[in-house]
Design a protein around this nucleic acid. Structure first.
Length: 644
RNA sequence: GCCAGCGUAGCUCAGUCGGUAGAGCGGCUCACUCGUAAUGAGCAGGUCACGGGUUCGAUUCCUGUCGCUGGCUCCA
């Protein structure tokens, strides 16, 4: 929708709402706010508040993203108001109620009680009533002291705390609708009846101000849309996401299994899952070989003293598994870097060897608190496609730049969109300010050079250095960190790593820790959801299912399968005595890219009738002509069938 | 770990206001030999997550443990 710019020059007492109504007549409800030179604001404000003279404004239409945050914000107030009505205003302590990407929430605390899932319809009903009442929403401000006094009087300690953190001297902004007043920056709708379609979605716990030392509040999530149609679409999207969920599809397609009693957070990969993982690794190896990496394997269990030296003992022990044997303590590795450093230090190193890129599919174990485990996305044992680049300081920017390109190139294979964060120094970290500064600036420089959009993630770096993180979205729009590039001056120091320079003197190398997939497990989970289980041919565990129509065609099908297998094509014959419809449906549900239907006609003509999983009967062709195209499809890592 | 909800056959789910359980799919057997998304019949399969308590009796009520889901905190 194109922004509508309007010139206004009217009486200062007039509200934008009045202007809007006279301009748009009975369609005025389609616009929910107004953009002025001072930013987006309420329609109920008077023109005079914005200053005097002639200037341009822009009406904010309900279908815009900007409008979403307006009506959803109002909806969160309506939610809070409904909760006070149901549980009694004296029993409800309010936290915050912002809008989020797909909706809104409100954090509340109910005295001597809790909201339960089954209460949501009741709350929705009260919200409907408030919407129907169509209370006008009034904005007002108070000086800080009076604002605090008002919230004290209303028994809202969290609101008092919020106001206390607001800057001195500025008026505190409130909104009032009927019997409900809330501290809020706005903007809001002009009354509670403007946007109707909404739904409360779920209930969760959330710490006050996001700190686990604080009281846990109850968070009620909901969403709202300008039309019933849009709300329905969103709810359908949620349903579709459930169908794509890798935790459902993975076991269904025979890719992996998680036995939550025996090994919570530690997936078992099944035959088909291993085939897909192996293909992933093959492509990875190709890309990395071209980029000059070598591959190593380090032990899973190493002596405690290694971890003391690396700093993991002090900074990461909570997340590590330990083993006692021979009165010695060993740790199951949570990271691969110390092992790689041991390899580095096993010989004297020359500047001629640098930059040295040492890679490993390193299986690591990290203890994670039970509540955070999530399918393949958050596990306790996983395989990092890890690598460490040992180099001189002069190499940093070039190596980081190369990495950003490598990651981008690999993600393009799958068509992933991703978000990039630069994470800076955390609290529990080691090293001097100067080194952190240098390291952070180097990464920034690489980001600028590659022209990647990124945002700063303050204080989220590793304990040994800053990092660039790449996040990919899952089917519900939640983002998961996958690739990471971490710069490290600490480990070389702690392990007294050196190389002999051109000047025949000892020098200290610098390290980059990096992954592309992040974790094979997580990446596989994301792939399952991305493709809804229908992997492209090169990744598909079963690439071709040969389907005899009757038992007498089994031998011919077996020969077809063998021919395919000899060409390295993963094929199977479905020789069960079932009808062809049944076999097709079965292959379809298993997301097999190609089906070959074989009956009397095909046997006689030495052909196969080809069908893709996208329900297309392509007719009879010779096996050779299939193989030609198919091999091309696999070689190109094509994401769709070349037959379609 | 925290808050709320939940745990019944391999999977999806019924059911029992306290008297030890049922369906569909899947599996196995038999018949059918079929042309582009489910042929029919029969059979097998459950210590109702696990431990303790209340009770004549617990899958059902209470309680603890483990696990799961949605979030929060934390993280690849």
């Amino acid at each position: 929708m194109n922004p509508e710019r309007v010139k206004i020059d009217v009486t200062p007492e007039q509200t934008f709402l009045e202007i809007l109504k006279s301009e748009k007549k009975d369609r005025w409800k389609e616009w929910v706010a107004v953009k002025t030179k001072n930013g987006t604001t309420d329609l109920t404000r008077t023109v005079g508040e914005m200053g005097s003279g002639e200037y341009e404004i822009e009406w904010v239409h309900r279908d815009t993203t900007e409008a979403q945050s307006v009506y959803r914000h109002t909806m969160s107030h309506i939610l809070a108001q409904a909760v006070t009505h149901i549980y009694g205003v004296k029993n409800v302590v309010l936290g915050i109620g912002p809008t989020i990407e797909n909706g809104f929430y409100y954090d509340i605390l109910i005295d001597n009680g809790a909201v339960q899932e089954e209460d949501l319809p009741k709350i929705e009903k009260e919200m409907e009533r408030i919407i129907k009442e169509n209370y006008p929403i009034r904005h007002f401000t108070l000086p800080k002291e009076e604002a605090i006094a008002l919230m004290r009087e209303k028994g809202q300690p969290y609101k008092v705390e919020l106001i206390e953190h607001l800057p001195e001297g500025e008026p505190i902004s409130f909104y009032e609708q009927g019997d409900f007043v809330d501290l809020c920056r706005g903007p809001h709708l002009s009354s509670t009846g403007i946007i109707r379609p909404f739904k409360l979605l779920s209930l969760a716990g959330a710490y006050w101000r996001g700190d686990e030392k604080n009281q846990m509040l109850q968070r009620i999530y909901g969403t709202a849309f300008p039309t019933n149609e849009a709300l329905k679409d969103y709810l359908e999207f949620l349903e579709e996401s459930k169908r794509r969920d890798h935790r459902r599809l993975g076991p269904q397609l025979g890719l992996f299994h998680i036995d939550t009693e025996i090994a919570a957070g530690m997936p078992f990969f099944l035959e088909k899952g291993v085939i897909a993982l192996t293909e992933l690794q093959t492509v990875w190896r190709k890309f990395h070989k071209e980029a000059g990496y070598i591959e190593v394997i380090t032990p899973l269990v190493m002596h405690e003293k290694l971890w003391r030296q690396s700093g993991h003992w002090d900074h990461y022990r909570e997340n590590m598994y330990f083993i006692e044997k021979d009165e010695q303590t060993y740790a199951v590795k949570p990271m691969n870097c110390p092992g790689h450093i041991i390899i580095y230090k096993s010989q004297a190193r020359s500047y001629r060897e640098l930059p040295w890129k040492m890679a490993e599919f390193g299986k690591v174990h990290r203890y994670e608190r039970s509540g955070v485990l999530h399918g393949l996305f958050r596990v306790r044992s996983f395989t990092q496609d890890d690598a460490h680049i040992f180099m001189t300081e002069d190499d940093i920017v070039r190596e980081a730049t190369d990495l950003i390109h490598l990651i981008d190139r690999m993600y393009k294979v799958f068509g992933f969109e991703y978000r990039v964060d630069l994470s800076t120094r955390p609290e529990n970290s080691m090293g001097s300010d100067e080194l952190w500064e240098l390291a952070t600036e180097s990464l920034k420089k690489a980001l600028v050079e590659t022209q990647v959009d990124y945002r700063i993630n303050e204080g989220d770096g590793a304990f040994y250095g800053p990092k660039i993180d790449f996040h990919i979205k899952d089917c519900l729009g939640r983002t998961w960190q996958c690739a990471t590039v971490q710069l490290d001056f600490q480990m070389p120091e702690r392990f007294d790593m050196t190389y002999i320079g051109q000047d025949n003197q000892e020098h200290r190398p610098v390290m980059i820790h990096r992954t592309v997939f992040g974790s094979l497990e997580r990446f596989m989970g994301i792939l399952i959801e991305h493709y809804a289980g229908a992997f492209p041919s090169w990744l598909a565990p079963v690439q071709v299912s040969v389907l005899p129509i009757a038992d007498r065609h089994n031998d011919y099908c077996q020969r077809v399968k063998e021919t395919l297998a000899n060409r390295g094509i993963r094929a199977q014959v479905d020789s069960r005595s079932k009808k062809i419809n049944y076999k097709i449906r079965d292959a379809q549900l298993n997301k097999v890219p190609y089906m070959m239907v074989v009956g009397d006609k095909e046997v006689e003509e030495e052909k196969i009738a080809l069908r893709t999983r996208n329900e297309k009967d392509l007719g009879a062709i010779t096996l050779d002509s299939f193989i030609d195209v198919f091999e091309k499809e696999v070689k190109e890592l094509a994401d769709h069938s070349l037959f379609e």
